[in-house]
Design a protein around this nucleic acid. Sequence first.
DNA 1: CGAAAGTGTTGGAACGTTCCAACAAATCGT
DNA 2: ACGATTTGTTGGAACGTTCCAACACTTTCG
Lengths: 336, 336
Amino acid sequence: MAPNRPTIKDVAALAGVSKSLVSLAMRGSDRVSAESRASIIEAATQLGYRPNAAARSLADRRSHTLGVVVLDLLNPIYAEIIDGVQGEVRQHGYHTMLVTGNDNPVIEQGEVEKLLDFQVEGLVLIGHRMPAGSLDAIGGDCPAVVISRAERGIAGLDSISNDDVSGARMAVDHLVSLGHRSIAHVTGGGNEVAMLRKLGYEQSMTEHGLADQTACYDGAFTDEGGYRGAAAALDSGRGHTALFVANDIAAVGALAAVADRGLDVPTDISIVGYDGMALAGLRSLSITTIAQPLARIGTEGARLLFLRIGDPTRPPAHIGVEPRLIIRNSSGPCHT
Amino acid sequence: MAPNRPTIKDVAALAGVSKSLVSLAMRGSDRVSAESRASIIEAATQLGYRPNAAARSLADRRSHTLGVVVLDLLNPIYAEIIDGVQGEVRQHGYHTMLVTGNDNPVIEQGEVEKLLDFQVEGLVLIGHRMPAGSLDAIGGDCPAVVISRAERGIAGLDSISNDDVSGARMAVDHLVSLGHRSIAHVTGGGNEVAMLRKLGYEQSMTEHGLADQTACYDGAFTDEGGYRGAAAALDSGRGHTALFVANDIAAVGALAAVADRGLDVPTDISIVGYDGMALAGLRSLSITTIAQPLARIGTEGARLLFLRIGDPTRPPAHIGVEPRLIIRNSSGPCHT
DNA sequence: CGAAAGTGTTGGAACGTTCCAACAAATCGT
DNA sequence: ACGATTTGTTGGAACGTTCCAACACTTTCG
């Protein structure tokens, strides 16, 4: 419609001042007289002037933009983390470019490249799936923070994650305090996070003198995986009275496995999940869980990134946040 | 670390050609000799050259970027739509800037402004919450498509949404075919979408000669709202045997209300939801639902936007997609 | 009262690309 | 063999900003 977007020059001409002054005024400098400022604003609104972000970032060599890469938007816990990140970023007056990897390393890599082309000033990686090599390369190119994966050993990258080992122990402690002894673990597969949760489970069982009761069943971080693992546990004949399931989604699957066998939760079987996704709190599910402070992980992650942007030489930090137990209706006293 | 990012000039110098030629080569023009191309690529990789997107979009006055504004990331159905949009956008070689309104019109407005500053070439609004006035303004400034809200009457804006009226009728048809007659509706509140679903419910009830059985209970598009509405329905003493709940999340709440009263789904009460979010299919929930083709809505929406970008003068189109019934375990034959 | 310090304002040079007109060299057709 | 085309290549002018040194005017102060 409009033949062409008005530029700073058009505004200057209409207001009868130089383009430099318009530039100052637009950025709210106090070296502009009230009079000039008024006529500039007048002219700008009249023309519908809109600063060109590309030109701006070219000229001052800063994009005022952060890139956020998330493994997979469909996972509700990532969505909650993102909300935290975005809030913090907004407060700093930065803009956010959010992209998904679609759970696909190749796409993820490509998206990251694009973000770097855009000269983002920093990168937030949420649950990434990149080989350590590329991660290193990124770290060299651009400040970055890794959320939700403890990247020990990756030099130069800040990271933040919850303490999975200690969280898993909380789950076991809770079940033990309810009188359970035969507590099985449905795992989340072979990934790093799942391994840590398994480790915490084993440690805590041993500490409670229940080493001989330890039993792990293969699962995954999915509904299906939880169902499979729980089914194996229930059919094992070992008389488990409680299940610590590696994450909330899988716990939902476990719930179904229990129901399919005509058993009741929590009367016959107690279930504890992990993550604290909002969904697990819905009344029909009401799953006891180890909740990560998701929004806080997001905001702290962003804060970490801003610190590094402010001082690129500071030593890489890892922040660990403590998860907390949320007791709902899927866990109850042991009746055997 | 690196003193400064290498530019096209540095590459040119190292490869011993002009910057123009480098520019051509980088964009894969076929007017570059194999020889030059090789040395350019060699030089570029050696320097770690990365084109500057800001400079590029300034120079050719196209950002190759689309803005995507989503009402609220936490809603899983939006996440599925976004995935569809991103896939299509990627295919066209465009980049995506995704922002949330955080369910807050003020934030949403601000984010849209920022996107426009970035000279995005088009805007995808998913479940927006903007006053018609601003929408109009946007439509004038920049091609835009509205997803998941039927914006009749907004001139100049393309839109795509599922046919809520016809979907609601499918739900009722399904329940009637199972033998139910006293079918209540738990509404989604006063918003446009909820009203359409309610309308479809009423129409279908009337067509089946069940006008006198029509009964609506106030709910909302939330777990809580569904619980409340279903509770009211069950406690009404009208002996409803089936509930058509306005969306899937609310249906989850309704499930809890039924359970709380010691009733069984689907033996005593059948429940049908709406949206087809992946979650509703989890085995512990297994909710019969009217599924929107979410990913397809996303891809079609993006396609619509590209069409408009290609030809800004084409008359605004509205695409309606048909939802479809997915039968799961929450609905069954009527036993009374 | 004259030098120093402050207050608004300005034009021009970046920033890193793409586009364009121009051109040299190789190839063609007759 | 000579203009006409084709094939690579080039420097310079955009694009819309911000930054900087320089300016013309006040005001301040010893």
